[in-house]
Amino acid sequence: MKKRNKHIYLLSPLYIYLILFFFAPIFILFIYSFWLKSSSGFIHTFTLQNYIKIFSNPLYLTVIRNSILIGLVTAVICVLASYPVAYAIAFKYKKLQDVILYIILISLFSSYLVRVYAWRIILGRYGLINQILIYLKLIKEPLTFFLYSPTSVIITLVFILIPFTILPIYSSLTNISIDLHEAAADLGANKFKTFFKVTLPLSKSGVTSGFIFSFVLATGDYVTPQLVGGTQGLMIGRIISDQFGMAFNWPFGSSLAYFTLFLIVLTVNLFIWIVKILKIGR
């Protein structure tokens, strides 16, 4: 901390990179959302027509609503399922800790495309679950309730995204000193009371970031609904990307992207606000 402005030199490559390749692109996308498509290309104007179009066709609003709902359900299940896992890794399994963390990391860093595809093999109409059940003579006809529907999208997303919730919750739990548990016990709190008054409030930051991560990733997902979602599991990512592909209506795609992003940010802030007013454990 001798030279005063040294940090600027260290940060300037990052600033340049972010301004050029992050802020400029999202700004250009914003500009595109006010343009119009014509037969020969794009008309450079300033109009809100694309945004009005979103509200004029119920299809778009329905798909956006479904995507956000799928994202929310996925995030809630992810948090509920990963809390016990994170808790056990942090406090219970001393010897197995490294092994389980390693498994979670392998799952996190192994190709996301491949894992979604694997779930299609497992969940499909002639997928492994149905084949095994038929082989064991438990059913005669393939079960269909979990195929090509929002349910199969949620099942797949949960197992794809669960590492993103386990890790932040685990890391917030490891920051809790074991002394605090003992102190709570000495002061007469039972296990449940210790959990709700000490452990849960102190792991709030991990839960929040895990929830946000899995919600944002699930809502904006593109691959999962296409591979396991069928027609009912259509999500907004597909519609946006179609505007940049076949439909070649980039301006409309941009406005859809911005509108969805706006709703995602709104939902995330709503969640943070709810966590705040709940004042868990106080």
């Binding site: 990052l14 390749f21 692109p25 250009i28 996308l29 944002v216 990733l217 946006i240 941009s254």
Partner: peptide
């Protein structure tokens, strides 16, 4: 702010860069 590119949905990052 520096963490933004990590938290924005990949599809939006993709189309932004394509437009850019």
């Amino acid at each position: 702010t520096v963490l933004f590119p990590m938290t924005i949905p990949a599809i939006i990052l993709g189309i932004s860069l394509l437009s850019f």
